[in-house]
Design a protein around this nucleic acid. Structure first.
Lengths: 252, 252
DNA sequence: TGATACACACTACCATGGTAGTGTGTCAAT
DNA sequence: ATTGACACACTACCATGGTAGTGTGTATCA
């Protein structure tokens, strides 16, 4: 039973606090929509537990257990599991059980394909149409990335990395595309989480970000796309190494 | 109250029958996984009701009502609604109500963008790598499309159209990509459902299918991609017309 | 007439009980 | 030692009760 582990890693005690770490705006008279249902919160926690490998691939779950550990009833847990199954992070076998999906090479490769198709199109659309505010904010982001790398703060770098890619979609006016990317990216997040402690890796990623940005700023659509392709394919190298190092995480 | 309408259109009486019209294989010793939970069936029915405009945009729903009309409890209905909300077909306002999402121009356009990015990549990857079995099956599909057009069977043509595009993804070994396309396509399906009775439209689509196929067969990746782009953009013309004809279906 | 307090009728939401289906271990018979 | 039957523990699944939150209509007061 892995319940203790989950507890210690901070899975329990939901609490009706604020949603995903958003900054509190200093303006009064906000829409007050903080009364968020807890079901999405459960989803969020479980998703994080999976992508950070707190819950290991192929591990058996159960609505009952998770509900107890999280301190809520089975219903919101079940709803979260269904959603995670939709996204391919969990396999639900009717009347048998729910299991953390093993890392499937085919899924990772296809996620890579989807992400590449979308993000390349995004930067190509964006090239030459970037606003000044956008340029400035991305430049600031890249500067923070540089600091994170210098300080060796991998966690922070990951967040900035994500923000960088999300920002591109937002500027292009494509929020739903980012949602899709976010979902398929989940397949790779587990891989990346393991692969971080590789020397020089963060530097490579940062350099690629800068190159993409420069092509974008210069309005060179084709080059921006090509560089994005090269950048995203970095992950594939990682998954190959990991497949050899930890074959027990992988499945059919 | 639109309950009567829904009943008559075949929304009620779920029944634990077979899943989505699959052919029964004549081999013994099959996995027998026909004991499908009814929750996905409810989802399927609601989805169809929305895309075929049995349930109109902005129409108010309620777990309670739907459960009664469908003859099941509120739980599977709720689960279906959550999934539909995830896919952007339903807006759930906590503690207030659930509503069929209005057709949003921005959503339709972005769905178009996503689909284009993906499907163009698919045909480019596929060009020149198509198996003989694939060539044959697509050829058969196109022949059936021709018949459907000749007989003016719009419903059948839509199915064959969908099968055509799905087949491309399958042959490319990209089932998840088809899933993504399927989801974003939902945004356009409502539009298409209204726009069918336009003279010469089916002929145009069929001709485009043939052109894509020929480029694919000839291994001309670039041209296949270009033709797919042109093909998919047909929908945009439709949505513009419809926006003028039925502005009440559209929202923010 | 206009604004305000309030009761009511809804909603989605979470909790919980009951059930059919499935795997597993135990024990008997071969 | 292998196989088979059977009881049991476990699962996801659906049904249903209770509750907090929200909009709306309706009296009451200025």
């Amino acid at each position: 039973m892995a319940s203790k582990l989950l507890m210690e890693k901070g899975l329990s005690d939901v609490g009706r606090g604020k949603g995903a770490g958003q900054r509190e705006p200093s303006r009064a008279l906000e829409p007050v929509n903080n009364r968020m249902p807890i079901s999405p919160q459960i989803y969020e926690r479980l998703r994080r537990a999976i992508t950070t490998l707190v819950m290991l691939p192929s591990e058996a779950l159960s609505e009952q257990d998770l509900a107890q550990q999280l301190g809520v009833s089975r219903t919101p847990v079940r709803e979260a599991l269904i959603r995670l199954a939709d996204e391919g992070l969990i396999d639900i076998l009717p009347q048998r059980g729910s299991f953390v999906a093993p890392i499937r090479l085919s899924d990772v490769e296809e996620a890579q394909f989807i992400r590449e198709a979308l993000e390349v199109s995004v930067v190509q659309r964006l090239a030459g149409h970037a606003s000044q505010a956008f340029i400035a904010s991305v430049r600031a982001n890249l500067e923070m990335q540089r600091k994170a790398v210098a300080e060796g703060d991998r966690e922070l770098f990951l967040e900035l990395d994500e923000a960088f890619h999300r920002r591109l979609c937002e500027e292009a006016g494509l929020p739903r595309s980012w949602r899709v990317i976010q979902v398929v990216k989940l397949q790779m997040d587990r891989v990346r989480y393991l692969s971080l402690p590789e020397p020089g890796h963060l530097e490579t990623l940062l350099a690629q970000h800068v190159e993409i940005f420069e092509a974008l700023e210069a309005g060179e659509a084709k080059q921006a796309g090509a560089r994005m392709t090269a950048h995203l394919r970095e992950v594939l190298r990682t998954v190959q190494r990991l497949n050899l190092a930890r074959p027990d995480f992988f499945g059919r």
